[in-house]
Design a protein around this nucleic acid. Structure first.
Lengths: 297, 297
DNA sequence: CCCAAATTCGAAAGCGCTTTCAATTTTTAA
DNA sequence: TTAAAAATTGAAAGCGCTTTCGAATTTGGG
């Protein structure tokens, strides 16, 4: 087995791709979703003889971290995640000549770049439409943090579906926050306390949906009967929603698979300097489970 | 910024530590707990100028993966996790001369090795004793997978506490399985269905505790009133149990902190070839939350 | 003030591969 | 059979650092 360090020096390539944990909120370094994403990338790297290295950037030293990464030549390319509004990383990667791929899209990027994303707006549009078809008219949204791009798109899909159905938006039916059980519980509880309450919810993660379920039970209501929930399901291996009849009706797209694909695209890009930019938009599939039913009230 | 590849070749050291995802169950590559653990290791690596690389071993090619890793010289040492019964990795690491540290302990290792572990038996003994002090006599255990060492120790702590209180073990009050919401729900539901049911539970993870809470609510019972729960809390950043009054009474030990410590110990071991083996046993702290109360029935 | 010791400095060797290039051998076509 | 082309082989150069080593310079003591 040849020495990797020597090979790397001789070829000028490290056979390593990097992932910088974007510690927007220092607290949540590796969310369960990021965890599965990393797992997928690792799987793919193994297949190609690459390795994955993880790094962390202090929120205020992000640029410096990337520059150093480039100068050290420790990685052949990086996978970026969770694009923010006017994300500065794209311009930076171009400037320092670092091959990269974005998991997610940024809104108005001046420069071209590779990305892989789920059609989040479409997913939430479908989820909302599904509830509309069941007769629901007051539909709440329990969204992720709307400073991150994917949540904005999910919101917009939700709004599109409502508008198409001729239903006006109700601000108090819309919530955004961390995708935790607690947040899901809080948000749904608040919305259920009012007299004019939603009969259904679209929810941004299974964790939040679990919290939603708790709030629904606490309100003395029955999930799938009195209140319907459609969740976005990242298909996490440890939070399975793949029972014969899934617990939650969901729009599902495996984030682990996304990790695999993203890594594949990056490695391909690194190995062939031609055809630099590649994009892929995944569609989430709708799976009907036990958490939805015809609107009653 | 000097080139890392060249430096690595010149010094013979890669300034990289590795972590091989032990895909015992291929499905759960990166559990939320592993995710936080990895986050902690990454933080520490950043502090020392190291990087962390993740790898994956096919269950039946584990040995080969490590040998290759060693021959390639891609890492200076590895962090091992989730020791199993008679774990073969310890002997293997010695044979190939790979510096390593184990997160957790193996039962009867012939060879010396470094490890960091939480005092799992003590933690569960305390959790159980706490419930006993509250007057509970029928205490169930919802444990993790008992083919992994830490779960065995937790069970033993639970048994010790009961024996000390002169209470005999009740097999139908003992359950073991994946640390998921679903498993926690199932296990507690089954135990609550019988007439002679537990009035309290010690539970191996917050996720399982969330499932337990659901089962308790479904049974028309009130958590912290009718049924008490003490959970093992890995202090995951995304599953916070750090409210003013924690949702769950818990024995808590941060797995992210464990990741930091483990990486520190490994780097220290790699840098100084003297003083090769180092051990550390962490104690979990008991935090009283809203999920426990005096036994009623 | 001179020589030995200590320190500084710069050049060269070497880490273990890949890659290039020249030399040799084999193959092909006339 | 011979010359040109193709394929094979082996040696050497080089990747960008660290480390070593010897020369040059500085320091200190007699």
């Amino acid at each position: 087995m040849p020495d990797k360090k020597a090979r790397a020096l001789a070829t000028g390539r490290s056979f390593t791709i990097g992932h910088v944990l974007s510690s927007q909120n220092k607290e949540e370094l590796v969310s369960p979703i990021t965890g599965d994403f990393i797992g997928g990338m690792t799987e793919c790297c193994a297949d190609f003889g690459y390795s994955l290295t993880l790094m962390i950037a202090q929120p205020d030293h992000e640029e410096q971290t990337f520059r150093k990464l480039r100068a050290e030549g420790a990685v052949d390319g990086v996978v970026l995640q969770l694009p923010r509004q006017d994300d500065p990383r794209i311009a930076l990667m171009h400037e320092i000549g670092m091959p990269f791929i974005m998991h997610g899209r940024v809104e108005n990027a001046d420069l071209p770049y590779s990305w892989l994303d789920v059609n989040n707006s479409r997913a939430f549009q479908r989820a909302t439409s599904f509830l509309l078809d069941l007769g629901h008219r007051r539909i709440g949204i329990i969204n992720g943090d709307e400073s991150v791009n994917f949540a904005v798109r999910r919101r917009s899909g939700y709004e599109t579906a409502l508008k198409e159905a001729g239903i006006s938006l109700t601000p108090r039916f819309m919530s955004s926050g961390q995708m935790t059980e607690e947040n899901g519980h809080e948000a749904v509880r608040n919305m259920l306390m009012r007299k004019e309450r939603p009969t259904a919810f679209v929810v941004s993660s299974i964790m939040q949906a679990i919290g939603a379920r708790r709030a629904i039970q606490e309100a003395g209501l029955q999930l799938g009967k009195d209140i319907s929930v459609v969740a976005y399901d990242d298909d996490l291996s440890y939070l399975s929603n793949r029972q014969d009849i899934p617990l939650f009706t969901a729009v599902r797209s495996s984030v682990r698979e996304a990790g695999r694909l993203v890594a594949t695209m990056l490695i391909r890009q690194v190995e062939s300097s031609t055809n630099p930019f590649e994009n892929e938009l995944l569609e989430a599939e709708l799976v009907v489970g036990a958490s939805t039913g015809v609107a009653v009230s």
